[in-house]
Structure formats: C-alpha cells, structure tokens
C-alpha cells in the first residue's frame, strides 16, 4: 500500500487452504517438540524448540497461535481429568468385585 506498510499482511494464512495447512503443520511440529520435553504450556520450554517456534510464529496468525496454545492446555487438563475418572471407576469396580 505504501512505503511504510509491512509487506506481510495481518492474517496471511486464513483465506487459503494452503496457508492453513502450512500453519497446522508447523503447529504440530512445535507441539511434538513440546511433548518430547514434557512441556504443556507454550512459552515454558525455555531455549528448546526454538526452530519450531520460529516456524510456528512465521506461518500462523497471532490469534491462531493464542487459540492453539490455549486449546493445548485445556486438552491436557481434560486428559488428566479423564484419566483420573477412569482410574477412579476402575478402582470402584475392583472394590465391588473384591
């Protein structure tokens, strides 16, 4: 538009399938890296996963990154809750058997 505007549009990924796929792939790579070091909340990984983090930020809009990171935390909490629920029910069924 002008000399001072940045060449990168605000949300480059949204409108095309290609852009979305690229974002999802770099997100998955970054999250896989977080999984490998046992980090759930993005940003708490320190210096690890920096290559993936750069790609992630490059290919996804900021709003998407916030959304995906939040959802990762929520999914993890749900997983914990489900796991504890299933162990509880397993314990309960054990009790009824014995």
């Amino acid at each position: 538009m002008g000399w001072f505007s940045s060449s990168k549009p605000e949300h480059p990924a949204a409108a095309s399938r290609q852009g979305r796929t690229k974002c999802w792939e770099s997100r998955d790579a970054y999250f896989a890296c977080l999984d490998s070091i046992g980090v759930v909340k993005a940003g708490e990984e320190g210096k690890a996963c920096s290559t993936q983090a750069v790609q992630y930020k490059e290919n996804c809009a900021k709003s998407w990154i916030e959304y995906f990171n939040q959802r990762r935390v929520i999914a993890d909490r749900q997983k914990d809750r489900l796991a504890s629920a299933s162990t509880y029910s397993a314990g309960a069924s054990n009790r009824t058997i014995s």
């Binding site: 949204a14 409108a15 399938r17 979305r20 709003s63």
Partner: peptide, 9 residues
C-alpha cells in the same frame, strides 16, 4: 468466519 483457525474449514 474466514479467519477461523480450524473448526470452520
């Protein structure tokens, strides 16, 4: 909406 991350598509 078009800026929808993953559910809409």
């Amino acid at each position: 909406f078009t800026n929808c991350p993953d559910i809409c598509p």
